[in-house]
């Protein structure tokens, strides 16, 4: 009797285990489809993290402009880099440190320069995915940046650019974007993390439920890093009914920073 009970317990446990395995193997979230049958990732999205300060884990710290006090101090963050520090080559790590020291003059962000990829994806402003069959557009609020992702009629980058040249494909639920053709001028964050014009970014974007996307990117740049490395973070849908990409033309706001010393009466 007792033996039978035990063996039935074992069978039951086995069933539970089997059931759990089935749950684990259940397909991931299936996104709603567009009319042409592709996962529909359209919408207004935004990262909610502190990666624009520093994509690696970092503590709270004073900002570079003391007059702005706590309003522009570094917010602490756990980072979006997977598996340890960014694998810089030794000389590149030196340059990163110099970038940090000189970030007030070298970071492209205060100058309202196009943010590049992947930085555009985690700046603290919304962007919109507009999805058509042959092309997908990403329209970013900051600096009016944009990316066209060619799902058809794909070519190599005709020339280097800030936002790179993106070719995409669907792998099941996942939008995979392969981007090259970058210039060497954009940064990853305000901490001076950087790349060369050999940057190659492969992004994987998939919905995990109705209002969240999982974003992963593999960063490869043999001029700067010893091996490819990965970043990942969720993107949150801006669920406000009236969410839209507003115009954030920042050129005007950067002009005194860039040209102020050339005024007839120089700025103090």
């Amino acid at each position: 009797m007792r033996t039978r009970f035990i063996s039935s317990m074992i069978v039951a446990a086995g069933l539970v285990l089997a059931a759990m395995t089935v749950v684990a193997q259940a397909p991931a979230y299936r996104a709603p489809r567009t009319k042409d049958g592709k996962p529909n990732l359209a919408g207004v999205w935004q990262a909610v993290n502190e990666a624009n300060w520093d994509i690696e884990a970092h503590s709270a710290a004073p900002g570079p402009v003391y007059q702005l006090g706590a309003a522009y101090s570094v917010a602490p963050g756990l980072g979006i880099v997977e598996g340890g520090p960014i694998p810089y080559k030794p000389e590149a790590l030196q340059k990163k440190k110099q970038n940090f020291t000189n970030r007030m003059t070298l970071d492209p962000e205060p100058k309202c320069y196009l943010p590049g990829v992947p930085r555009a994806m985690y700046m603290p402003y919304p962007f919109q995915i507009v999805q058509s069959t042959k092309q997908i557009m990403m329209v970013f609020e900051f600096a009016g940046a944009l990316r066209t992702i060619y799902m058809a009629d794909q070519t190599e980058a005709p020339a280097d650019s800030w936002m790179g040249w993106s070719n995409g494909r669907w792998e099941g639920e996942t939008l995979v974007i392969d981007t090259t053709g970058f210039n060497d001028l954009s940064w990853f964050d305000r901490a001076g993390n950087f790349h060369s014009d050999a940057l190659h970014v492969v992004e994987r974007i998939a919905a995990i439920d109705a209002d969240h996307l999982n974003y992963e990117a593999t960063i490869e740049d043999p001029n700067v890093f010893t091996r490819p490395w990965k970043i990942s973070f969720p993107l949150y849908r801006r669920i406000e009914k009236n969410a839209q990409i507003l115009e954030y033309k920042c050129v005007e706001f950067s002009e005194d920073l860039i040209y102020g010393h050339l005024r007839k009466v120089p700025l103090k």
């Binding site: 567009t34 919109q128 999805q131 058509s132 557009m137 009016g144 944009l146 839209q244």
Partner: peptide
């Protein structure tokens, strides 16, 4: 570029993008 509820017009000059909602929402 068109999707069901949005038309975007990329203007090459100064990389302007007009994102035009089609869902009947009121103006900002």
């Amino acid at each position: 570029l068109q999707s069901k509820d949005t038309v975007t017009i990329l203007i090459e000059m100064l990389h302007e993008v007009r994102v035009i909602p089609l869902d009947g929402r009121p103006h900002a």
